[in-house]
């Protein structure tokens, strides 16, 4: 009991989480983003997202860990389109994390909002609580038409029906980079060593990923850009994704 209390005290001590080496952060420059959806396919390939079929797509049962939202501004002929890639924001104060009764989702020491598929019982509360609607539920067990399953990434598990899933910031790539760093006797991975699939593919280099605990990291500098903002700031979720707003010339 006393160790439990001690631990609790430790957790609630300010700066407890600062002792860790990483806080993975992403910046997305909407002035560069063209809405081409390369990231969407990259994610689908990397993370074994299912092909759901037209019928299920029509029922909004698609699974896209990253999606592009589009918003019109104005009316013809003075009309503009704004694209915004929407993926798990890995909020520091994530509403989904308090929702799960079985701790299938929690905040890890790298600042990631993680989802443990094996632990999930599928109450879907996290998806209701998520203001960004980036959590996707496996309404069915999806299968791949043979031989499409040969493409499946062996580093990422395939999910079964009844399980919630979402963007992991490509945690498998983070894992590999950390292993490499450990093999090389480095304490931290180098800036740019971890590149999630979406960031890697982005043709306009709108996305940037890195460790914001490292003040020298590109992402830390980009976050301070005056155009930076977080989506739905008024909800106080403190997302780990900083968007850089488009410049209107």
């Amino acid at each position: 009991m006393s160790t439990f209390v001690e631990k609790l005290r430790q957790y609630s001590k300010p700066g407890y989480y600062d002792e860790f080496d990483y806080h993975w952060t992403m910046t997305i420059d909407l002035d560069r983003c063209t809405g081409c959806e390369a990231c969407v396919v990259a994610c689908q390939a990397e993370n074994n997202l299912p092909i759901v079929g037209e019928e299920r797509f029509a029922q909004s049962r698609e699974i896209k860990w990253i999606r592009i939202e589009r918003y019109w501004e104005g009316e013809y002929p003075n009309i503009k389109m704004g694209f915004i890639p929407m993926l798990c924001q890995h909020c520091d104060d994530a509403p989904c994390e308090t929702a799960c009764p079985v701790y299938a989702t929690y905040h890890n020491q790298d600042g990631l909002n993680t989802q443990i598929y094996n632990r999930c019982i599928g109450t879907r509360t996290c998806a209701v609580y998520c203001p960004y609607e980036v959590r996707y539920f496996n309404w069915f067990t999806y299968t791949w038409d043979e031989p499409l399953e040969q493409q499946l990434n062996p580093d990422v598990s395939v999910r079964e029906k009844g399980v919630m899933e979402k963007c992991t910031f490509c945690i498998q790539r983070i894992r590999i980079a950390k292993d490499n760093a450990k093999d090389d006797d480095r304490r931290r991975v180098r800036d740019g060593e971890v590149v999630p699939a979406c960031v890697q593919s982005c043709p306009t280099e709108a996305m940037l990923f890195g460790n914001s605990k490292d003040p020298e990291a590109k992402v830390s500098k980009m976050m301070k850009n005056t155009r930076g903002y977080t989506v739905l700031k008024d909800l106080n979720t403190t997302p780990s994704i900083v968007y850089l707003k488009k410049v209107h010339a």
């Binding site: 896209k64 918003y71 019109w72 915004i84 903002y229 989506v231 739905l232 707003k245």
Partner: peptide, 18 residues
Amino acid sequence: TDGVTRTLGRQILGPGND
């Protein structure tokens, strides 16, 4: 996949860009 394609003044595209 789209629902409503207007931001409804919710500052989704950034402060002042909405």
